[in-house]
Design a protein around this nucleic acid. Structure first.
Lengths: 115, 115
DNA sequence: TGCATATATGGCTTATTATACAAATACAAC
DNA sequence: GTTGTATTTGTATAATAAGCCATATATGCA
């Protein structure tokens, strides 16, 4: 039962924020091809393993990843593949690009009252 | 032609980040019902108008909103309605919830190195 | 022209986030 | 038990973001 107030929006925003980082997007993209261990994911980006671990925990806490323990390692996988739909929409947005709202006469912004 | 490197991921992450805020989600949700002016949108949340204006500009710069000038006002609308699909996926994620990865025996965290 | 309204921006403070390094924890194998 | 590997967490630092107030800009109207 989703409440309809601001806390619902905060909850949603938190989940979206979990996806709003290039490294985490790469993790999600990679996991769409199959599950991976933390070490495997850490090879994808030139950051410290501890940083990757934190990124993964952000995704896990958001409910986007699930994981299973395999002896020493943890194997992560995409729990909600619908996040991949995000990405195709994002591509659309990128292709359309951002437009200035309207000209609004941006001629002499630097009001250089040149004599 | 999307490049396939890290900058592509950064670009995507920026767009997703534009949606990762409760106020901005409310703006998007509201605009899904039709275009609104800044003042109208500012009535939705108890924050300063200048703050709402900034939120709107984040969405506009991300390419999510478009706007038309109407005399004194600016009327904003959803440029890429596919962002609404985000929200249904986010609902799914919320319903599933986040699980701890595995017990891993979190007994005595406070490593009291009793002699 | 001058004043009012609508929106955006500059500047500042505070809160959050990303990152690295070091250390802790869990498990495996010896 | 000790040692080694995989992963997480503590702590500190630097970068970013959200918010407010004041001000600037654009337009409308008298």
């Amino acid at each position: 039962m989703p409440d309809s107030g601001y806390s619902r929006l905060r909850r949603r925003a938190d989940i979206i924020a979990a996806l709003a980082h290039p490294t985490r997007l790469l993790v999600v993209e990679t996991l769409s091809e199959g599950s991976r261990t933390v070490s495997e994911l850490a090879e994808l980006v030139p950051v410290d393993m501890s940083t990757v671990s934190r990124h993964i925990s952000v995704l896990r806490n958001a409910g986007i990843l699930s994981c299973t323990v395999e002896g020493n390692r943890r194997r992560y996988s995409l729990k909600t593949p619908c996040v991949l739909n995000f990405l195709s929409c994002v591509e659309d947005i990128i292709e359309e690009g951002a437009e200035a709202c309207a000209p609004l006469h941006v001629s002499d912004r630097h009001r250089g009252s040149s004599s």
